[in-house]
């Protein structure tokens, strides 16, 4: 494990860039992988794949319901379809299609969703879905993954091809600090970033970087942090949660999602059943987003580095 104080971003890169790279790589090694997109190939960074494998790409136009059905059919035929669009249109818009034709029917479809959360930015709340993790984790049998940087998104895009079953892979639009180590991603296995006994911090997606930065601040004050990245929300690594809170006795969750239905909600369900401890959420609380720059929005909606830091302080006082 690296010393938390030494963790720095090697560069800023969008998680969707990591997706495009991983998707292209896995298509090269697995000839069953095919791609579908609803008129957003540039945004999803699918060009390299399309250039090399045009016969394995299906442009469906602005018709997401049809895309999910076609993906289910391709899966019936033995293919591994990656159905790609913005997170809002990949989940809420087509929930019934996913529920019936993919989840209930056990189809090996990979729903790959970019532009999730408020960091979508200026396009505003119509596009900034903050409910998708909740929607997708409620579907029986669905695996739900929200990587934290471009490197991890690349590895997740590769890993889901070998996972037999429907997956939801959620990532985002903006350039974002890249700090994870290659080879560290395994579906369903939380990654420990620092060990401590004062407070647990569990984060997913973009907010993992804020959790790293907040942890540095806490450590510099002499507070030891048990910091984990929960890139997989379902199946949840309950073992990591329970081991961590047994040491620290309090926990903070951090995510770019509604409090209802998100990672924190899953963590709370786990600790309530096994070992109730004080818990604080860093999440959007029953609100839509709005237009603005990603950094401004993260601050306004309580998702900043200082918000993670403050939540840890609150959790500590409640022990």
């Amino acid at each position: 494990m690296r010393d938390i104080l030494t963790i720095e971003a090697v560069e800023k890169k969008a998680t969707r860039d990591g997706f495009g790279q991983g998707f292209h790589e896995v298509a090269q090694s697995n000839s069953d992988v095919v791609g579908l997109c609803a008129d957003l190939v540039g945004s999803l960074k699918m060009q390299a794949f399309i250039k090399e494998f045009p016969e394995r790409f299906f442009q469906v136009g602005i018709a997401e319901a049809n895309m999910m059905g076609i993906a289910a059919g391709l899966a019936i035929g033995g293919k591994i379809p990656y159905a790609c669009t913005f997170a809002n249109f990949a989940t809420g818009r087509v929930y019934d299609q996913i529920r019936q034709s993919i989840a209930y029917s056990h189809k090996n479809v990979k729903i790959c969703a970019s532009h999730a959360g408020v960091t979508l930015g200026e396009d505003g709340a119509t596009h900034q879905i903050l409910e998708d993790i909740g929607l997708m984790k409620m579907l029986p049998g669905f695996t739900v993954i929200n990587p934290c940087d471009a490197q991890q998104t690349r590895e997740a895009a590769i890993a889901i091809a070998d996972h037999d079953g429907p997956c939801y892979l959620r990532f985002g639009r903006p350039g974002w600090p890249m700090f994870t180590e290659t080879g560290s991603f395994k579906i369903g296995k939380a990654i420990q970033f620092s060990e401590g006994s004062d407070v647990s911090i569990f984060a997913t997606g973009h907010l993992m970087w804020h959790a790293v930065e907040a942890s540095k601040k806490l450590v510099q004050e002499g507070i030891t942090v048990d910091l984990y990245n929960f890139h997989t929300i379902k199946p949840l690594d309950e073992e990591a949660i329970l081991e961590s809170i047994a040491k620290t006795g309090c926990v903070v969750t951090a995510e770019e999602h509604q409090r209802n239905g998100g990672l924190g909600d899953s963590v709370a369900q786990t600790i309530i059943r096994h070992n109730p401890v004080p818990m604080e959420y860093v999440a959007v609380n029953d609100s839509f987003g709005e237009s603005g720059k990603p950094a401004q929005l993260l601050t306004k909606y309580g998702l900043g580095i200082d918000d993670v830091y403050a939540a840890a302080k609150r959790a500590l006082t409640r022990k």
Binding site: A75, K79, Q97
Partner: peptide, 24 residues
């Protein structure tokens, strides 16, 4: 091969299978 009941989804699924047949 797929659940149906919530209406309107079967043609899309059938297209997917038809495409997979063409690929093979």
């Amino acid at each position: 091969r797929v659940a149906s009941g919530s209406l309107g989804q079967g043609i899309s699924v059938a297209i997917g299978v038809a495409l997979s047949k063409k690929l093979k």
